[in-house]
Design a protein around this nucleic acid. Structure first.
Lengths: 157, 157
DNA sequence: CCTGAAAGTAGCACCGC
DNA sequence: GCGGTGCTACTTTCAGG
């Protein structure tokens, strides 16, 4: 579901300072405001106010940690397309939501209703987890071999 | 490509405190160490050292900002499967990497070589952007209608 | 892993443009 | 409107236990 905006009508206007600030935060969200201020060439209070404004406008949703799945023992990643059997759509969504190894799931147009990302400790785990889904849906699974583009910022307006 | 670990052999061991800490950081990565300390029930210095250890071990890759695509004018999101034409695999990867609206791309097993996520200002932009890819690959596109599971942490060991 | 002191940082009120 | 300065309170870091 698309998040509501503080300003409901149009896309927020950003200036060069905002863009630099957002890039710096994308790079390291825990750096102090004083350091961010140095990077954007403003005083700390002004920078802090920019930050608050971007949060209030809804541009910034929050700040989060990026974990290394391998360090947690997730040596495999799969992308699963899921096509629920007739009448099973809502249940399938609930099943996916309840399996914590599904770290992300989008409902999409087209033949496959859901596209989800799955973290696995080993290939054995794949059948084990998908068994809970295949009762109610057809699945097709692709194993991730590499990630040419890791999550990055889109172009900023 | 899977990231190398500080400890090359096995998955890092986490205790309950580490798990609480990581969850708290996933929730808000910018909260002060003193606040994190309160949540895990440790002193600030001990919490800060945990944090440093988790980064050194490679469990924590970094901290980043979550932006609201709608606020930036990206009213549409698409997931594109890409099957390069013979001999075009490397070029296709490069083309995707160069188009900043592709915010994520995985190389996967199976018929479709790449699965990528695309941010769009409008549906018109879809053809415009995919034109650069379809010279060298077959694509199939699914528009995101909603996101039942937004990026979340997997189960922590 | 904790306490305590020193350095650094953030938040606030107020001023200037 | 937006940004800067100076003060106070908080937070982080390091020492030592």
């Amino acid at each position: 579901m698309n998040k509501r905006l503080a300003s409901p009508t149009a896309s927020v206007m950003l200036d060069e300072t905002d863009r630099t600030l957002l890039s710096a935060l994308a790079d390291d969200a825990r750096q102090p405001v004083s350091e961010l201020a140095r990077r954007v060439g403003l005083s700390a209070p002004s920078t802090a106010e920019r930050l608050r404004r971007l949060e209030a406008q809804g541009v910034i949703e929050g700040f989060t940690v990026r974990l290394n799945p391998c360090a947690l023992g997730y040596t495999l990643q799969a992308i699963v397309r899921v096509k629920p059997l007739p009448g099973q759509l809502h249940l399938v969504e609930e099943v996916i939501r309840r399996i914590p190894e599904f770290v992300e799931c989008d409902k999409v147009t087209g033949d496959d209703c859901f596209i989800a990302r799955l973290y696995l400790h080993s290939i054995d785990q794949l059948d084990e987890i998908l068994a809970k889904v295949t009762e109610r849906a057809e699945t097709s699974t692709a194993i991730v071999k590499s990630t040419p583009v890791a999550r990055r910022l889109p172009p900023l307006p």
